[in-house]
């Protein structure tokens, strides 16, 4: 299988779906000649023209409102938010309009739209361009939240998201755009709501998404080599709906759970994972308290050392895994 970047995978998913379905179009800021702030849509204007690569003024609320309106009457918009942080400007059309139209109108409306948004820290962009706001989006019935960690997942999940009939928030981690992974040349799609076990293990279940999957895999390798600890890394891939079954099954096997995310701790989705597991029979199989390792409860700072200290790093994960496995309860 050829290796392509995460950026290319997202690009390819959009291009293939736009070729397949004339209703699909891309709307957002600087997505044409500029190719998008992170270069994801580079070249798409040349292929599809300004009629389907719709470059907008800097009007985030109107972009999401327009996507929702177009979706309600039969189009399949993909809206690009330049940074995930800007989604906060669009909460009204996203939460009060797109997410609710179907329910509020008694099941008679569909709003098939995808909002792509680069999230996460690590680029020195500071507090307003580095957030991980997945939990805010997960809290809204009617919205699905997807957060791929690999090129393979990014392409397959984006294709499913574009074909889905609901508003989808598709969270891309900006540090992953250059990462490479194998992606088949033939068409494929990954169903939403299905987790993926990225590494099998026996001693501890580590749930992580986005870039934290990669950091967790690195940490798992270190503790395997240095401590003989066998970590199972589960990537939910879709945060809402959350595949609790796969996570609970893993916990039943390992007896320990650590949830790692970059988003801040308070009311973060680690709490949701832990609560969900505690409601299953797997709770009875736990040999240790469930733990979470998350971003600190601070805005993302600018200084590189402070920025790195604000979110979990490989060493932090290694330390946490050891603490859980080595403590006698």
């Amino acid at each position: 299988m050829p290796e392509i970047t995460y950026r290319q995978a997202i690009h390819d998913a959009m291009v293939e779906e736009m070729r397949r379905d004339g209703r699909v179009f891309l709307i957002g800021e600087d997505i044409g000649t500029y190719g998008g702030a992170f270069g994801v849509s580079a070249g798409m204007l040349e292929e599809f023209g300004p009629g389907r690569i719709v470059e907008t003024p800097i009007s985030e609320e109107a972009i999401i409102g327009a996507a929702a309106g177009a979706a309600m009457v039969g189009m399949r918009p993909i809206a690009e938010m330049m940074f995930m942080d800007f989604i906060l400007l669009t909460m009204e059309p996203l939460v009060n309009q797109a997410a609710k139209a179907r329910y509020m109108f008694g099941g008679k409306a569909t709003v098939p739209m995808v909002v792509r948004m680069p999230g996460g820290s690590g680029t020195g962009a500071a507090a307003q361009h580095s957030q991980s706001l997945e939990t805010i989006l997960m809290h809204i019935p009617g919205i699905k939240v997807v957060a791929p960690s690999t090129s393979y997942d990014a392409k397959g999940l984006l294709i499913s998201s574009i074909r889905d009939l609901n508003p989808i928030c598709f969270v891309e981690h900006k540090l992953l755009y250059k990462s490479k992974g194998e992606v088949p040349e033939e068409e494929y799609a990954i169903p939403l709501g299905v987790a993926d076990v990225k590494r099998e293990g026996r001693d501890l279940t580590l749930v992580a998404s986005g870039i934290m999957v990669h950091k967790s895999l690195d940490a798992a390798q270190i503790v395997a080599e240095e401590d003989g600890i066998s970590v199972e890394v589960v990537d939910p891939r879709t945060l809402r709906p959350l595949d609790v079954d796969t996570i609970a099954k893993s916990v039943k096997k390992t007896g320990r759970l650590l949830v790692v995310h970059e988003a801040v701790k308070t009311a973060g989705w680690a709490g949701e994972v832990m609560a969900s597991v505690s409601e299953t029979p797997s709770w009875d199989y736990l040999d240790a308290p469930m733990r979470r390792l998350t971003g600190k409860d601070v805005p993302i700072p600018y200084n590189r050392h402070l920025e790195a200290a604000a979110v979990p790093q490989v060493d932090d994960i290694v330390r946490e895994v050891r603490a859980i496995v080595n403590t006698q309860y």
Partner: peptide
Amino acid sequence: QLAAGVGL
């Protein structure tokens, strides 16, 4: 909010 999208 929706109008421009419907128009589009």
